[in-house]
Design a protein around this nucleic acid. Sequence first.
DNA 1: TGGAGCGAGTTCTATGAAGCAACTGACTAG
DNA 2: CTAGTCAGTTGCTTCATAGAACTCGCTCCA
Lengths: 169, 169
Amino acid sequence: MRRTSFKDVNCSIAQCLEAVGDWWSMLIVRDALFGVTRFDDFQRRLGISRNVLNQRLQHLVDHGVLERVPYSEHPPRHEYRPTAKGRDLWRVADAMRQWGDRWTAPAGPPVELLHTTCGHRTELVPHCGHCGAPVEPTEVTPVPGPGATDPDFIPTHPQIASEEPHMSA
Amino acid sequence: MRRTSFKDVNCSIAQCLEAVGDWWSMLIVRDALFGVTRFDDFQRRLGISRNVLNQRLQHLVDHGVLERVPYSEHPPRHEYRPTAKGRDLWRVADAMRQWGDRWTAPAGPPVELLHTTCGHRTELVPHCGHCGAPVEPTEVTPVPGPGATDPDFIPTHPQIASEEPHMSA
DNA sequence: TGGAGCGAGTTCTATGAAGCAACTGACTAG
DNA sequence: CTAGTCAGTTGCTTCATAGAACTCGCTCCA
């Protein structure tokens, strides 16, 4: 369907979507972070068709999110493991999980998070990296960064900031 | 292309993707959170074709992420505003922004976050909602929650936990 | 009264990605 | 020597997407 690429869009969200922005990629990454590594395991768990899975895995490898690691010589076999870049997607996955839990899980969350350090089930709460306080969406405002090129990425209706929560990119 | 629906998948990530998981929806939400409300503004900023934009806006309205608010009677006109559910996607958007900044922004982040409460540019850091400590991906483990139905959503190779960072849903 | 313009869609066509199923190829296990 | 595993590949059909042109209801201006 001649998908438009976000490669040249100067927006970090668009760049993230360029890597994992289609229907399946994020679920593949989710499973990869769970520890799934093999083609057939992905295929069975996701119910994705094999050609599309192959294509998505290639795409994720091309973008450095997964890497192909050979685990057998003689029937030449490899598995897919998350790279550091791929592992770093856990926050995106977790934010999605929290949102889904809050808004679309009437029977309660299917999966919860155990903080092994303190031993309790928990939710992650964003804190300010500078002052350390927990951050509400109304307390942050996007401002142009060093890589800014497109003035349009700054809010077109900044006055809304007072009445509507903002976001972050 | 006969997209498979994730509606019946008992996974909060899949539910999130069901709402905003295609190429355009997350960018529409991003712009909506920036304060964009009008059809033509979305269209111009995103360069999306009008029929697809219309379809996506409908989809987001159907899923309760945006709402149509009339702002003119006589030429019947409405604008699209994020609902509470939509505003809550800011964490997902922010996680994507951080990931994109870290891995795909060689010229520096195009947009940064100003924490208005403390007055500094900052990044959001996830903290444990229970003990309050900052959380690294290696410190959390997914466990079945009250809404769990599918045993497959639990890691298939739990032993990986020791050597590989885990994730959260 | 007549024309230009705006905002929000709707309709059209072609192109090509998604989905499905069947097939290949290199091996292993019984 | 047959069945099974694993990781793809090929072929076919169908339908979503991009892109542009068009509609509709109105306002503004002369």
